[in-house]
């Protein structure tokens, strides 16, 4: 009875206590919608607000992530020495195998035959990296493949730089704050990367599907639609001229696992499994021009630290 009375209305009241007035509902909904239109229409209007929030939330993410890391990595340290030794020898074998394979890599062999060898080598030499760690991953419910890294403009990061890790292409920087930066992963549905099939040197575009887990896939659409890619072909980045735009050339992206031919649309679509495990991203490298001023040590193209 008591609960009923609490819900009861006096004759003057037009609504339940605690319920918002219609004007408040309308105001908030309109505010959200106009913000969407503002952000979608004129790019750059919301960016100052994003930067301001990043300055506050970024360092908090950085410290929480540093505190969480030892706890999350704890299960890793509970392994016997035998396990580790077995893993070490397996990895060493794999490493040697990979090294020989890299030397005879299809893309490289082709490149040897090409006249632009010298320019490529020069571009390779000009490639240095700023090491960074992933400190924040957006919720899957946001459907976007973006992560925060703990390096910003103070470390020489600026938008459009390529981000890689030891396995291959990770993505590109889309926004850089003073101490943190946001990276758009190649698996994001809004990401498009120019790719080249290592075996045939055919060009195409890779688009993400949005999933980050072990089932993360990219769709490859070839420019020349008569070409049929082979399974297990390696796809590397096509690269922009001079390496100034997003994505430097020759970074491995993934391998072809399925090929769909649609006779009706006369297109070839290949599904690519990326080399990078996006669910376990940790240490990444941001490719910067050699000689970039940075507040942390840069890995130079020859492997030395500066």
């Amino acid at each position: 009875m008591f609960e009923r009375r609490a819900w009861g209305r006096s004759p003057g009241e037009t609504q339940l206590p605690g319920t918002p007035s219609r004007s408040l509902v309308a105001a908030l909904v309109l505010a959200s919608v106009s913000l969407m239109l503002l952000d979608r229409g004129a790019s750059g209007l919301v960016d100052p607000a994003r930067d301001a929030v990043a300055e506050v939330v970024g360092p908090a993410q950085s410290s929480v992530s540093a505190a969480v890391r030892p706890v999350v990595e704890l299960p890793e340290s509970f392994r016997t020495r035998g396990d580790l030794r077995a893993e070490l020898s397996a990895l060493q074998e794999e490493n040697a195998d990979l090294r020989t394979r890299v030397r005879t890599d299809d893309a490289d062999r082709h490149r040897l035959a090409e006249y632009d060898r010298l320019t490529t080598a020069a571009a390779d030499l000009g490639r240095a990296m700023v090491p960074a760690r992933v400190i924040g991953v957006g919720p899957s419910q946001s459907f976007s493949g973006t992560v925060t890294i703990d390096a910003g403009t103070e470390s020489g990061i600026r938008p459009d730089l390529t981000v890689v890790n030891a396995d291959g292409l990770v993505g590109r920087v889309i926004r850089a704050g003073a101490t943190t930066a946001t990276v758009l992963l190649v698996v994001d549905p809004d990401s498009t990367v120019g790719g080249r099939i290592g075996q045939s040197m055919d060009l195409g575009f890779l688009r993400g599907r949005g999933s980050l887990g072990s089932d993360a896939r990219l769709d490859l659409e070839l420019v020349d639609q008569t070409v049929v890619p082979h399974r297990e072909d390696t796809v590397v980045t096509w690269g922009s001229r001079g390496g100034n735009g997003p994505y430097v050339s020759g970074v491995p992206i993934g391998r072809v696992i399925e090929v769909y031919a649609s006779p009706r649309e006369t297109t070839q679509r290949a599904v690519i499994e990326p080399f990078v495990d996006f669910a376990r991203l940790d240490v990444v490298g941001v490719v910067v021009p050699s000689g970039t001023a940075s507040d942390r040590s840069i890995v130079e193209a020859d492997g030395s630290l500066r």
């Binding site: 970024g58 924040g136 758009l184």
Partner: peptide, 19 residues
């Protein structure tokens, strides 16, 4: 929602989580 929309690493159109 507004905070989620603006905080890194989100890159979607601001206002979507707010709504």
């Amino acid at each position: 929602g507004l905070l989620v929309d603006l905080a890194p690493p989100s890159d979607h159109v601001a206002g979507r989580w707010a709504l």
